[in-house]
Write a protein that binds this DNA or RNA. Structure first.
Length: 479
RNA sequence: GGCGGCGUACCCAAGUGGCAAGGGAGCAGUCUGCAAAACUGCCAUCCAGCGGUUCGAAUCCGCUCGCCGCCUCCA
């Protein structure tokens, strides 16, 4: 069995069969850099990050390109509002996006092209389209003729006649057809412009992806991804222009689209003012909690960012690392064991099967918590019987965690690091906490439980929770 | 109006033909000076509703109800 994935183009699951397993080509639409990226961008980036990691994990050689749209109406408008240069604004938000991605633990794609660095190729594709009669130039603009390709609409399931009937696009007299879209836009004074056969101007939105894809990957690629909302018109137009230009179809074999993130059940939108930036979310939760939250549902389903679901993700991360710490404390042999214990491959099967089935990270996470339960049970039994725990069983479990951590990009810290980081956010200095713990333990030794309990309550009121374990008293920050 | 998706326990969420994963909450128990954590048990005879196909359906088909997305250069 191999990977099966849901293809938006055929609306069904298909066996993944790339053109060349040693060079799987994947392109994902990146951000338009005119503002800080929000949690929706995070979902797209994390979803495809996991897909990228998993394909590599399964032995494919992957070339992954994710672009930056760094010239666009929104960028120009925002730059004008702020009175800065559009290019400068774009650079600023590319940097911010890169920082956000790094904070989320998103691996760098193989290529990160920018539209403005692909102007030559954009012009070349546009010329090809004109040469083949699929595009026409008017007053410095170049438009793509939607009607000339009869399979237009195959991705979004739209048909041209109905689109025309309900067209909400403002009619531009210079277009042959209201549905035609701009490949090249004539430059206005003060806007970023490049020389072209049609005069000074800048690229349209859809064409940049086709050009970047061809430049860095190929004329036919394996996987093309992006948010659901990009299906129409962006990806539909990309397919049309790419296939028209190259004469090859399909442009991309598999189209993958991630679902939206709602905030407290409402769609994120400027009008509602509920756009949640990645950096703001990271002030409330660690990147691991955010990633776990995002990966706890299937990547195609819509998800709700709510206080409750984030708290649950946080509790789950905590439970995971607590168990990891227990294993390290109570069965060091398991940690010291071979990182790939023989006979453990079977242990991975459930995880692999889940991931093979359209990247079902939710099921993988469910399986991981089954293993967490197994580990705790084994440790409890050892504690009760006074015998040492079987290191073999636990080393299998650790192996499963480690492997899953490689493609999920979570659950891969060492427990010491996790708790150190968490406890570093304590409002009370660690020395003071330690001093109070010693004081309480002295009281406990003297069986002055009233005093012991009052110290614990004092700490709890300051956000510090205590746990008496066989290894001594431990503390953690509780929100 | 066109296209697409969804509806699984108190909440979140897997499961797409063979007796309903996982997490959170709750209740009871073990452990503990007491807690916490962990573990154990309980918690959907049932998967929006109604029909149909089938030996067998949450899973396939039809209809109904409810929710949502796209059709606006919003991931």
């Amino acid at each position: 069995m191999g990977i099966r994935l849901y293809n938006s183009l055929t609306r069904g699951k298909e066996d993944f069969s790339p053109g060349n397993p040693d060079r799987v080509l994947m392109y994902v639409c990146g951000p338009t850099v005119y503002a800080h990226s929000h949690i929706g961008h995070a979902r797209s980036a994390v979803s495809f990050d996991v897909i990228y990691r998993y394909l590599k994990y399964r032995g494919y050689k992957v070339e992954y390109a994710r672009n930056y749209t760094d010239v666009d109406d929104k960028i120009i408008n925002r730059a004008n509002e702020e009175g800065v240069d559009p290019a400068e604004l774009a650079v600023r938000y590319i940097k911010a996006f890169d920082e956000d991605m790094a904070a989320l633990g998103v691996e760098l794609p193989t290529y990160r092209p920018k539209a403005t660095e692909t102007i030559k190729e954009i012009i070349e594709v546009t010329e090809r389209l004109i040469g083949k009669g699929f595009a026409y130039a008017v007053d410095g603009d170049v438009y793509y003729s939607v009607k000339l390709k009869k399979d237009y609409g195959k991705l979004s399931g739209k048909n041209i006649d109905e689109l025309e009937a309900g067209a909400r696009v403002e009619v531009d007299e210079r277009k042959n057809d209201p549905l035609d879209f701009a490949l090249w836009k004539a430059g206005k004074p003060g806007e970023p412009s490049w020389e072209s056969p049609w005069g000074m101007g800048r690229p349209g939105w859809h064409i940049e992806c086709s050009a970047m894809c061809m430049k860095w990957l190929d004329e036919t690629i394996d996987i093309h991804g992006g948010g659901r909302d990009l299906i129409f018109p962006h990806h539909e137009n990309e397919i049309a222009q790419s296939e028209a230009a190259t004469g090859k179809a399909p442009y991309a074999r598999y189209w993958l689209h991630n679902g939206f993130v709602n905030i407290e059940k409402e769609k994120m939108s400027k009008s509602l003012g509920n756009i949640l930036n990645i950096r703001d979310a990271l002030k409330e939760h660690t990147s691991e909690v955010l990633r776990l939250f995002l990966l706890s549902s299937h990547y195609r389903s819509p998800i709700d960012y709510t206080q409750d679901s984030l708290n649950e993700a946080e509790a789950a991360v905590e439970r995971f690392y607590k168990t990891l710490k227990r294993i390290a404390d109570e069965c060091p042999d398991a940690v010291a064991a071979d990182s790939r214990p023989s006979g453990s491959e079977e242990r991975l099967n459930g995880l692999i099967e889940a991931m093979d089935d359209d990247f079902n990270t939710a099921e993988v996470i469910g399986n991981i918590f089954k293993e967490v339960n197994r580990a705790n049970r084994a440790l409890d039994e050892a504690r009760a019987s006074g015998k040492r725990t079987s290191a073999t069983e636990l080393s299998f479990i650790l192996f499963a965690f480690k492997e899953a951590g490689r493609f999920l990009g979570i659950f891969n810290k060492d427990p010491e690091g996790y708790f150190r980081e968490k406890n570093s956010r304590s409002a009370m200095p660690a020395e003071e906490i330690e001093r109070l713990i010693m004081e309480r333990n002295e009281a406990r030794r003297l069986r002055d439980f009233k005093k012991a309990d009052s110290i614990r309550e004092l700490l709890l009121s300051r956000g510090i929770a205590l746990e008496d374990t066989p290894k001594g008293t431990e503390w953690t920050v509780r929100r």
